[in-house]
Simulated scan of single mutants.
Amino acid sequence: MSQPPPIQAPGGLAPIVAFGIEDEYGNCSVVSGIRPLPTRLTPADVPAALVGTTSTSTLVGPFEPALNAVVYCTLSGDFEGSVQVARSTDGGETLHPLTVAGSTWGAFFGPACEAVWQESEEGASLWLDCSINSGSLEYRVSQ
């Protein structure tokens, strides 16, 4: 391994920058080969997909997403009706439809496969509010 360049006049100093992440005790720890910067979820961090089929109107959930990872909603089947993705922070007691800049988001009226959300709040959950008029809906919410 080569030596770093020497510090020379006129400054006699060199600024050093290091990245830190939270360790298991909540303290700042310098990123290193022993404690690398986390860059992606591992399979153990990803929750099981919420998967099922329904031919009646129902509320499906909860799906408790891993933080800061995209959530996908896949809908298929010959259903007629609507599906609205909703979010709750109190275990499903109160459901809020997803919106973006005040406009409805995560509302579907037929088959779809889309990224619908990215959660940043611990303990929040996602639900599917399914209003089925006829046919059968197959759903999958996953990360």
Rank of each mutant, 00 (worst) to 15 (best):
P65V: 09
F109G: 15
V60P: 03
P15N: 13
S76H: 02
S136R: 13
P62N: 00
P97H: 04
I16M: 13
V70M: 09
D45N: 07
E138R: 09
N27G: 08
A69Y: 12
G106D: 05
E93P: 01
P15Q: 14
C113A: 14
W127G: 04
F109H: 14
N27W: 09
G33K: 02
T99M: 02
D129E: 07
R140I: 01
R87H: 12
P65D: 03
I16L: 15
L67Q: 05
S125T: 14
F109K: 12
N133A: 14
A112H: 06
E119N: 14
T94A: 04
P38A: 09
P62L: 03
G102P: 01
L98R: 05
W117A: 10
P15Y: 12
F109P: 04
L137R: 08
A107M: 08
E114G: 00
E138C: 03
F19N: 05
A18N: 10
E93R: 05
E114T: 07
G20H: 08
T99R: 07
L98A: 08
H96R: 03
I16R: 14
Q143G: 05
A86Y: 04
C28D: 06
F109N: 14
C113W: 00
A124K: 01
L59V: 15
A86P: 00
Q118V: 13
I16F: 10
Q3G: 05
P5M: 13
R140S: 12
P38Q: 09
V141E: 02
A69R: 14
C113I: 03
E119W: 00
T58I: 14
C73N: 12
A69M: 05
G52F: 03
D129F: 06
T54F: 06
V85C: 13
S32P: 10
Q3T: 08
T42H: 08
G20P: 00
A66P: 02
D129A: 10
G20L: 08
E121H: 03
N27M: 11
S76G: 15
L50M: 10
T58G: 02
V70W: 10
S142W: 12
L128T: 09
T74C: 03
L137V: 07
L128G: 15
S29E: 13
H96M: 05
T89H: 01
F108H: 08
A49L: 10
E64L: 07
M1P: 06
E121I: 12
L95D: 11
L128D: 03
V60Y: 08
A112N: 10
F63S: 03
D23M: 04
T74P: 00
I132Y: 10
E138M: 06
F79G: 11
L41C: 02
T53H: 01
C113Y: 06
L95V: 03
V83S: 10
E119Y: 00
Q8K: 09
V70R: 14
L59T: 15
A14C: 07
R140K: 15
T56L: 12
T56H: 07
